[in-house]
């Protein structure tokens, strides 16, 4: 059963079409990643699922039913911009959001989550006393404290240090293990690759990718070579049969042109420099993202 179903959903703001004829199924119990460039329609889609925005056309069903407000008690929502009452104490603000969602056993849940995310000692302080990372964790707790069946997180990892990123990531996976469906948007392709059962990419309001990571990568085939060369990216420029070189510093990623043999390219590289490692791989999500939304693609698209 799908937790969320969108059918031909369209939303415009004035003359700008933010979401264009979007259909999507989010299976219950899955972790679904929304990716896409800034302004592509991710947040608008999430807000429509939350019933904050009403679609101009199409239908949205959550847990099999049309949204009518009351359903939002089953959904936890963490918006992109954090919104906490700064002059309220941490514990009070969490109880407020939990009770607003009609959460069960809110007091105990608040204390449990505060302890789980190592915020217990901050519980009696006002929100304005928290660092940005701590406030983000508090916002996360506010989202999940009512034990929602569907958790929607709009860029939950932005601005977090690695320790806090891990803490939130583990908490998300714990929610999934408990049966919740999690949808989150992110610009961190690594996180999306590692965490998501399904990845959906929206670009200029239209769905351009949707499926498991493997399925998405299969669409592109094994057209990627990851090389670690002694002379770095400088030695890899202007190679015949290579469409693009992406320099990651200690490693470079090459996109191989269709119908070209990677062995030929390896020979060409060896002729230029000493090769420390060479791997034929499927394209990373980062690369796929750039292929779709990067400057080259935009240039072609705009032309």
């Amino acid at each position: 059963m799908n937790a969320v179903e969108l059918r031909n959903v369209t939303k415009s703001f004035g003359k700008t079409v933010a979401v264009d004829d979007l259909s999507l199924d989010v299976p219950q119990g899955s972790v679904y990643g929304f990716i896409g460039p800034n302004g592509s329609g991710k947040t608008t889609t999430l807000r429509m699922i939350m019933n904050i925005y009403y679609p101009d056309g199409g239908t949205i069903r959550v847990f099999g039913g049309e949204l009518h407000g009351a359903c939002t008690d089953r959904i936890g929502y963490m918006p992109e911009e954090r919104g906490l009452y700064k002059r309220m104490k941490v514990r009070d603000v969490l109880r407020f959001y939990g009770e607003l969602k009609n959460g069960k056993d809110v007091r105990r849940q608040v204390d449990r989550w505060l302890e789980r995310l190592e915020l217990s000692e901050w519980a009696k302080l006002k929100v304005e006393a928290l660092s940005k990372g701590m406030a983000q964790k508090v916002q996360f707790i506010a989202t999940v404290v009512s034990r929602p069946e569907l958790v929607i997180l709009d860029e939950p990892f932005t601005g977090l240090d690695p320790v806090n990123t891990d803490a939130i990531r583990e908490a998300v996976l714990e929610l999934q293990a408990g049966g919740a469906t999690v949808i989150f948007s992110t610009h961190d392709m690594g996180v999306a690759e590692k965490m998501c059962d399904f990845i959906f990419m929206i670009f200029k309001g239209r769905k351009v990718l949707d499926g498991t990571l493997t399925a998405i990568q299969d669409q592109y085939g094994s057209d990627t070579i990851r090389v670690r060369a002694e002379d770095g990216a400088a030695a890899l420029q202007q190679l015949e049969g290579v469409e693009r070189v992406t320099d990651f510093g200690r490693m470079q990623e090459l996109r191989v042109a269709r119908d070209r043999d990677p062995q030929e390219i390896l020979r060409a590289i060896i002729a230029r420099t000493r090769v420390e490692s060479f791997e034929i791989a499927k394209p990373s999500l980062h690369d796929i993202f750039v292929r779709i939304a990067g400057p080259d693609a935009r240039g072609v698209d705009d032309a």
Binding site: T72, Y77, P79, G83, L84, Y97, L100, Q139
Partner: peptide, 16 residues
């Protein structure tokens, strides 16, 4: 303040 500090969006996730 609730609008500018984006609190409204969080509340609107729970209430009409």
């Amino acid at each position: 303040e609730e609008k500018s500090q984006r609190i409204a969006e969080v509340v609107l996730g729970s209430a009409k």
